[in-house]
Design a binder for these strands. Structure first.
Lengths: 306, 306
DNA sequence: CTTTATCCATCAGTTTATGTGATGGAGATA
DNA sequence: TATCTCCATCACATAAACTGATGGATAAAG
């Protein structure tokens, strides 16, 4: 016994307060009255405070007792919450879900899935990191996120991954840009002479990774949003996820480049996690829900080859 | 034993997490290692969750363990807070201090005293009810406040009271009011014909108590603040605590009535409490501090006879 | 004014939980 | 390999917690 104050004493106090007498508390707790009596005496002695006024037939809470009782209720319900948490952990639900999501990923879809998740696991704390390029993977590696949604590069030994869906990508440019007015098909040579708007990793870690750079003239941006603004302003061309630029294409501000060799392609999105920390019930449910939405909703689905 | 989950188990868990090993935890808790081992096993079995990965030499917290540990820390520190609360109760400090203060009472002074009180008892919750007329006493009677600061009427059997200080009162009127321009001394007869601004009890309980009403024409108000506005606007005259109207008298907006028979008088303020619930350390300290301030600070002190 | 029922405290004795100390297996460190 | 320290396990000891009987006190019923 490390400390004379025990949860059982507090539970007994609460029972007495709720039932109104020591005997009744004993009945409700399936204990003998003397056990209750001794438990309360023990509590009073460890706290050094008189909790009940025993002068009448039934004991009545003192001011101090009322005050202690309030606190006791908090503690006991906290203990019950602990058990509940343990139970859901035991039922293979992760204690909290942290996601590292590539900025390319269609956010409205993710939000829909998370809404469903929150309905299913109301007490589950969720953290979402939206990162560009290597950022999401970095989150998985340094363990600040547990589940990654991004385009995984060549097989990684320590990370387990699973294909989730394709994001439709296409080269686009502002409609008032020379490339938009050029007669299709656009050749690779034509692109090389124009400015390409490229994403850089905020953390500089993925300097090695600069795939997809075609043009010799390059502007670099740290985030998708800024790049989109420069794209709209006609600074250059770039590949964008269709779901992000479709509204602008429809409104005529952007034009899809009819590239001869590659009019559109798919960015494969994977579910990634540390091999030793596989997703549990909540994570798996989220993945399945996302998969259904991604294959159902045509707007965000893969490009149909034409 | 009502519940298999005990605070001692949580305390042990915390010790293990803090010291890094079962043996070290045992040393820090002055228990043998096997006791720690068994306590953790017991916790794991009641929660149905594996808390430590024992595959290595020293056990390392699992994800679940970390999550449970966070919660455990909250509970244990809550338990310590309970002990601390009990300790201050045992040291004769009331668990919380609730005041019912008459609106006439100089609030800045009370605030100064409460500031000192808060310095002395930083954890003491304080509630202040500012009430007019019978309101403060009502608070004491229905036990929503424990300590009253107001002018007690004739001896009350069940309430204990103690004189605290006199509040200087004086009849005043707006400077553009006929009474202000009348040639002193003002007679009672002159007052009777003018409108008097009177306070009524919000709760109507003190209808019986309407002392101090002189005029035949009366306007009634529920609170001091509103009455003061009507006073300033010249609707009538009334008795006011000097500390509230002094700034206005100095600025010339209000004029003190030079009453022949009663140019100024004192409202005695008492400290009142239920006979069975005397003020404890915090309350007594507050009273003493107030007494010192009231007798020291001339601005709020009693009227000097002239 | 009894009688009866129910309240609580106390106590000796039992049951149960918790802690002890010895032992053995396993990973580090030298 | 020798040695240290780690943890799990066991039989045993110790200390809580609980039981059931008793008696005093209060409140309601006869």
């Amino acid at each position: 016994m490390l400390d004379r104050l025990t949860l059982d004493q507090l539970r007994t106090l609460i029972a007495v307060a709720d039932t109104g007498s020591f005997s009744a508390a004993g009945r409700s707790l399936r204990r003998v009255q003397s056990a209750v009596s001794q438990a309360i005496q023990g509590l009073e002695s460890t706290l050094g405070v008189l909790l009940f006024d025993r002068s009448g037939k039934i004991p009545v809470l003192t001011d101090a007792g009322r005050s202690i009782l309030d606190h006791a209720r908090k503690l006991v319900s906290g203990a019950e919450a602990l058990r509940a948490k343990a139970e859901s952990i035991a039922a293979d639900v992760e204690p909290e879900l942290s996601l590292a999501v590539d900025a390319m990923f269609p956010n409205p879809l993710l939000m829909q899935s998370l809404k469903v998740l929150a309905g299913e696991f109301p007490d589950l704390p969720v953290t979402v990191f939206t990162e560009g390029l290597g950022g999401a993977e970095q989150r998985i590696r340094d363990n600040t996120a547990r589940l990654g949604l991004y385009s995984l590069r060549p097989q990684q030994d320590d990370l387990a991954s699973e294909f989730l869906a394709d994001i439709a990508m296409a080269p686009v440019v502002a409609s008032d840009h020379p490339l938009a007015k050029a007669k299709p098909p656009i050749t690779r040579a034509m692109l090389e002479d124009q400015v390409q708007l490229v994403l850089t990793d905020r953390t500089q870690i993925t300097a090695r990774f600069s795939g997809g750079v075609i043009s010799r003239r390059v502007w670099r941006f740290a985030d998708l949003g800024t790049r989109l603004e420069y794209l709209l302003a006609g600074f250059g061309w770039c590949n964008m996820p269709l779901h992000l630029v479709e509204p602008h294409i429809e409104s005529g501000r952007l034009t899809r480049l009819a590239l001869a060799e590659n009019p559109g392609w798919n960015l494969p999105i994977h579910v990634v996690h540390d091999r030793n920390r596989p997703p549990q019930r909540a994570g798996r449910m989220l993945i399945e829900d996302l998969r259904v939405r991604l294959t159902t909703c045509p707007k965000h689905g893969p490009v149909k080859p034409r």
